[in-house]
């Protein structure tokens, strides 16, 4: 009888699947896991492949590198909750340090690798409609009443945080006071018609739904967005912007448990080699190796880049977070005033 055969088949299939699931729970210590933020997916895919070749040439074994992507803050949360990351490459210092605070990273992670553990930097630039019809050239243009600004919320998005800091800094770094910065940023956020929760949502709003005149985004994302638009969009570099610093760190507690310390270390060291720096430049991230950066000068127009920590008196990221983004801090006050 067909029913009986079908039932037997289903039972065997389910039993096999159950066994597979149960075994899939055993820790996968043989592979590296890089837990990263969203805008670096294509970069890490290429870097991981290059690293596998590089490591195989040196040690004769091919390492296996997996990657996980999500919002910077939620990725940090997942690592704290037990995602077995060997390496984290998050958008913000505060997210990386949150993992240290949970005890998974050793103190002093920031000084362990060259350039304060920064294989590359980036910045926030403008994407505008073709021909720049609204003539957006500098930050001050964002507060003009005829300009609509697209940027994700700094409460939930790394991109949004860097954009906020760039706006604030554009006033302060050119000699303005905090009060002037606040007035400008308040005016600019009034020009935001939709405050998306995540970077990708903001990109959709701007590029696909055609809302807004200028989109604030990572330099590398801006290049992707412009390429995809097929000529409908273009990039504008403001004269000054924030130096975005996505740190890369080894998760010490995890690599000790998984016995992957040596491979993880080789992986992060690899990021500073000429080969990886070239890949980084080709994905429109600014390599920190001066020679490689000089060779790709043409990809990265010159603009004044400033560190976000100069915006608070103590010069620490904890203070940046507390001053601008904490509950009831400046961004919340600006939002409340805008309503």
């Amino acid at each position: 009888m067909w029913g009986r055969v079908l039932l037997r088949f289903a039972a065997v299939y389910v039993a096999a699947a159950a066994v597979w699931v149960a075994f899939a729970g055993f820790a996968r210590n043989e592979q590296l896991l890089n837990v990263a933020c969203d805008p670096t997916r294509e970069l890490w895919r290429d870097v991981n492949a290059a690293f596998a070749d590089y490591y195989e040439r040196q040690h004769g074994v091919r390492p296996f590198v997996r990657q996980s992507h999500g919002g910077s803050g939620s990725q940090a949360r997942s690592v704290i909750d037990g995602l077995p990351a060997d390496v984290i490459s998050l958008a913000l210092w505060t997210d990386t340090d949150a993992v240290r605070k949970s005890g998974l990273l050793d103190a002093g992670w920031e000084t362990r690798y060259p350039n304060r553990s920064l294989p590359y930097t980036s910045t926030i630039v403008f994407v505008v409609r073709k021909g720049n019809p609204k003539g957006v050239r500098d930050w001050a243009d964002l507060a003009r009443p005829d300009v609509e600004v697209i940027t994700p919320s700094p409460k939930t998005s790394g991109n949004g945080k860097w954009s906020f800091l760039a706006m604030w800094g554009s006033v302060v770094w050119r000699g303005g006071t905090d009060a002037e910065a606040r007035a400008f940023v308040t005016a600019a956020y009034r020009r935001v018609p939709v405050l998306d929760a995540a970077a990708r949502g903001a990109t959709m709003t701007f590029a696909q739904k055609n809302i807004g005149d200028v989109h604030l985004t990572w330099e590398n994302e801006a290049h992707l967005e412009v390429k995809e638009s097929g000529g409908a969009l273009e990039i504008v570099y403001p004269p000054v912007s924030v130096l975005a610093e996505p740190h890369v760190a080894v998760v010490d507690a995890n690599v000790r448990r998984k016995n992957t310390a040596a491979v993880a270390d080789a992986y992060v060291e690899f990021l500073y080699t000429k080969e990886a720096q070239e890949l980084i430049a080709r994905h429109y991230h600014r390599p920190t190796d001066p020679a490689v950066f000089a060779r790709h000068r043409g990809l990265f127009p010159e603009l004044r880049l400033e560190r976000a920590t100069t915006l608070v008196r103590s010069g620490t990221w904890d203070d940046v977070q507390k001053t601008f983004f904490a509950e009831g801090a400046i961004f919340d006050q600006i939002q409340a005033a805008g309503r």
Partner: peptide, 22 residues
């Protein structure tokens, strides 16, 4: 999760429930 006693015990014994198929 890694912050809980159950999660830590499982992790120390090489079994991953969260962030894995189980």
């Amino acid at each position: 999760g890694g912050q809980t006693a159950v999660g830590a015990w499982l992790r120390d014994h090489g079994y991953q429930v969260i962030f894995a198929p189980p």
